[in-house]
Design a protein around this nucleic acid. Structure first.
Length: 592
RNA sequence: GGGGUCGUAGCUCAGUCGGUUAGAGCGCCAGCCUGUCACGCUGGAGGCCGCGGGUUCGAGUCCCGUCGACCUCGCCA
C-alpha cells in the first residue's frame, strides 16, 4: 500500500503516529528557505503536510520543486499544530504531518484550470479535461451522492423481495417512440440491433415468466435532441411488479422515495405523496409536471372576458378558446412596461401565444390599456376570482386551451423563479395520475399513445374506447419533483385481446403488430399475470438531490448538446475495414 | 429543423464612436519571506482577438458565411 491513512481522517488523537499519505498537491506555500507547506488532497479530504529544516530533518530539494496536482507520497509524523494554529476550515485542521520522506509518484503539467478556487471555465474545456474537472470537490460530491442513491435504491428493493435482473443492450428496433441508436450486425448483412430506449418489453416478459418483482439500474438510449435535463444515454431505476394494481406501485415508490431521501439527504418526506389527476394539474398549473414548491395557480376567466367588449377576448371565447391568467402578487411595481410588452410577450410567444394581456390592481379597480373594455362589475368579478389585492399584477393569455396551458405554465415557472417564490433547496413531490390514453395526431390522422402502447386503459372508460378514444384515461402515473418528471409508469395490458384493441386504436394493424411486437403478444397469450411498473430517472433524481439544474453535473462522462464526448472524441469515423465487415456504405451528406 | 447567448493571454473577463503600443484579476515562471493555510511581497513571460471571406486608408469592434459550447421551441412511446 502506498498509504496508511487517507487525507481526510487524521485527528489530534493520531498525534505521535508515523503515517504514510498519498495524494495530489492541492496547494503549495513556501515560507523562506526552511519551511514549506503542502495541502495534500484525495477524495476524502485535505491534510496539511509540512517540510521543515531543523536539527533532525532537512527539506528535500524535491519538496521545493513540487507543483499543483503532482502526485506524491510522504512518510511523516502526525503532530498537533498547536494552539492558535488550528485551521477550522479543514476536518484535519488540528493536525499536520511533518514529512520525513517524500516520493514524487507522478508529475503534473500545469492544469488548464484551477481545481479549487478560481472561476469555473466554460463547459467545453471542463469536458475536454473531465479527468481534472472530476477532481473538483463539487463533482466528487455529486458522483458520491449518485453512488449512495443507487445503493439505497438497491437496498430498498432487495429487502422487499425484488430481483435485480439484467436485460439485453442489443435488442430489436421498435420504431414507436424516440429514435433508436442502431448497431449494425456483422453476421446479418443489412440488419441492425437497437440500443434500448428502456427495458419495457423485456420487463413485461419477465412478469409473464413469473419473476413477479423486478428492478434494474438500467442504461437507456434515445437519439433525440438534448436539454439541460436530458442526455442521449441515461439511467433508469426500472421496476415492474406482477399481481399488483396501480396503488401497489405508487405505495412501493412512496416508500422508496421517503426511504432514499431520508438516507442520502436526511430529508423527511411525508407519504403517501399527494396525488393529482392530469386534468386537475393541467387546469391549475398548465402542465403535467407542475412545480409545487409555490402556488400562483392559473385562473380561468373565459366567461367574464367573453362577455366584455374586448374583441380579442370575445373572439377567442366564442371560438372555443380560453382566457386564463396568473396573479403575480405585488407584481405591479416589479414588471416595467418594457418587460411586459417585450420580454414577457416574446416569452409566451415561444409557446404559441399571440399576446400577453396585463392588468394591475390599483385603487380597487383594474388599471390597464384594456381596462376600458370591462364594466365595473366585470372588473370586480375578475379581481375577486383572481383574489387580486392592491399592487397585484394580473397576466392573461387568450388562446386555445393547449396554448394557454403551455404559455402560462412556462410563465408561472419563470416568474416563480425570478421572484423567488420558493426555497430552491426544498422538495415538492407529487403523483399525477389518469393521463389520457391517447392524443390525436392531426398530421398523421390517427391517435398516438400518450405513454406507450402497452398501457392499460382505465376500465371505467372502456365504453369510449371505440366511440371517443380521446376521453379514455390510461392507468398511468408520473412522479413529479420540483417541476421535473422524475418517474413514469403504468399498469400494463396483460390480455392479448385488449392489447389488440389498443393496437387497432393506434392504427397498428395486426400484421404490423405481429411483426413489431409479436413476441410480446405471443407471451401475453400464455398466461400473463396482471402487472404494472414504473421507471425513475436516476440522473434527474441525483441532480435534484445535489441541488443542481444540469444533468451533466451528476454524470461522470456526459455528452454535449450534439451528443459528442469532448474527452474521447466520440463519435468518430472508423476504418474502411470495419465498415466493410458491417456491410456499411457511408453516403456523405451533400454540401450546403 | 427554428430562436437566443457566448467565443479576446492557460482560465475568468474588460476593451468606449472603427483609430495608432489589446488591458485587468487569477494561474504560470523567477527572486524574497521560519507558521502559512485561496499565504504575502517584488519582478517577468505569455495574444492567429474561434476560423474564412467582405466593407474600409484602417477591423477585436461593422457585414456575410462557417465551426464549437450553452439555453430553448419542435422532438423526447
Amino acid at each position: 500500500m502506498h498509504r496508511t491513512h487517507n487525507c481526510g481522517e487524521l485527528r489530534r488523537a493520531n498525534a505521535g503516529q508515523t503515517v504514510t499519505l498519498a495524494g495530489w498537491v492541492n496547494s503549495y506555500r513556501e515560507q523562506g528557505k526552511e519551511l514549506v507547506f503542502v495541502d495534500l488532497r484525495d477524495r476524502y479530504g485535505k491534510t496539511q503536510v509540512v517540510f521543515y529544516t531543523d536539527d533532525d530533518s532537512k527539506i528535500d530539494s524535491l519538496a521545493r520543486r513540487l507543483r499543483r496536482e503532482d502526485v506524491i507520497k510522504i512518510v511523516g509524523e502526525v503532530r498537533y499544530r498547536g494552539d492558535g494554529l488550528v485551521n477550522a476550515k479543514l476536518a484535519t485542521g488540528e493536525i499536520e504531518v511533518r514529512v520525513q520522506q517524500l516520493v514524487v509518484l507522478s508529475r503534473s503539467k500545469t492544469p488548464p484550470f484551477e481545481i479549487e478556487g478560481g472561476e469555473l471555465p466554460n463547459e467545453e474545456l471542463r469536458l475536454k479535461h473531465r479527468f481534472l474537472d472530476l477532481r473538483r470537490p463539487e463533482l466528487q460530491r455529486n458522483i458520491i451522492l449518485r453512488h449512495e442513491l443507487t445503493q439505497a435504491v438497491r437496498e430498498y428493493f432487495n429487502q422487499r423481495n425484488f430481483l435485480e435482473i439484467e436485460t439485453p443492450m442489443l435488442g430489436r428496433s421498435t420504431p414507436e417512440g424516440a429514435r433508436d441508436y442502431l448497431v449494425p450486425s456483422r453476421v446479418h448483412p443489412g440488419s441492425f440491433y437497437a440500443l434500448p430506449q428502456s427495458p419495457q418489453i423485456y420487463k413485461q416478459i419477465l412478469m409473464v415468466s413469473g419473476f413477479d418483482r423486478y428492478y434494474q439500474i438500467a442504461r437507456c438510449f434515445r437519439d433525440e435532441d438534448l436539454r439541460a435535463d436530458r442526455q442521449p444515454e441515461f439511467t433508469q431505476i426500472d421496476v415492474e411488479m406482477a399481481f399488483v394494481e396501480r396503488d401497489d406501485v405508487l405505495n412501493t415508490i412512496d416508500g422508496l422515495v421517503s426511504s432514499v431521501m431520508k438516507k442520502v439527504r436526511g430529508i423527511e418526506v411525508p407519504v403517501p405523496l399527494p396525488r393529482y389527476t392530469y386534468r386537475d394539474v393541467m387546469e391549475r398549473f398548465g402542465c403535467d409536471k407542475p412545480d409545487m414548491r409555490f402556488g400562483m395557480e392559473i385562473t380561468d376567466i373565459t366567461d367574464i372576458a367573453g362577455a366584455s367588449e374586448f374583441s380579442v377576448f370575445k373572439t377567442v371565447s366564442s371560438s372555443g378558446g380560453r382566457i386564463r391568467g396568473l396573479n403575480v402578487k405585488g407584481g405591479s411595481e416589479k414588471y416595467s412596461r418594457r418587460l411586459l410588452d417585450v420580454d414577457l410577450k416574446n416569452f409566451v410567444g415561444d409557446f404559441g401565444a399571440k399576446g400577453l394581456a396585463y392588468m394591475k390592481v390599483a385603487g380597487g379597480k383594474l388599471e390597464s390599456s384594456i381596462a376600458k373594455f370591462f364594466s365595473d362589475a366585470q372588473q370586480q368579478e375578475i379581481i375577486s376570482r383572481m383574489q387580486g389585492e392592491e399592487g397585484d399584477l394580473l397576466l392573461f393569455v387568450a388562446d386555445t386551451y393547449k396554448v394557454t396551458c403551455a404559455a402560462l405554465a412556462a410563465l408561472r415557472n419563470r416568474i416563480g423563479k425570478e421572484q423567488n417564490l420558493y426555497d430552491p433547496a426544498s422538495f415538492a413531490c407529487l403523483w399525477v395520475v389518469d393521463f389520457p390514453l391517447v392524443t390525436w395526431n392531426a398530421e398523421e390522422g390517427r391517435y398516438d399513445a400518450e405513454h406507450h402502447p402497452f398501457c392499460q386503459p382505465n376500465p371505467e372508460d372502456s365504453e369510449y374506447l371505440k366511440s371517443d378514444p380521446g376521453k379514455v384515461r390510461a392507468d398511468s402515473y408520473d412522479l413529479v419533483v420540483n417541476g421535473y418528471e422524475a418517474a413514469s409508469g403504468s399498469v400494463r395490458i396483460h390480455d392479448s385481446e385488449v392489447q389488440q384493441m389498443v393496437f387497432d386504436l393506434l392504427k397498428i394493424n395486426s400484421e404490423e403488430a405481429e411483426r413489431r411486437f409479436g413476441f410480446l403478444l405471443e407471451a401475453l397469450r400464455f398466461g400473463a399475470p396482471p402487472h404494472a411498473g414504473i421507471a425513475l430517472g436516476l440522473d434527474r433524481w441525483v441532480m435534484l438531490l445535489a441541488g443542481n439544474d444540469n444533468i451533466r453535473e451528476v454524470i461522470a462522462f456526459p455528452k454535449t448538446q450534439k451528443a459528442a464526448d469532448m474527452l474521447t472524441g466520440a463519435p468518430s469515423g472508423v476504418d474502411d475495414r470495419q465498415l466493410r465487415d458491417l456491410h456499411i456504405d457511408v453516403v456523405e451528406p451533400p454540401p450546403k
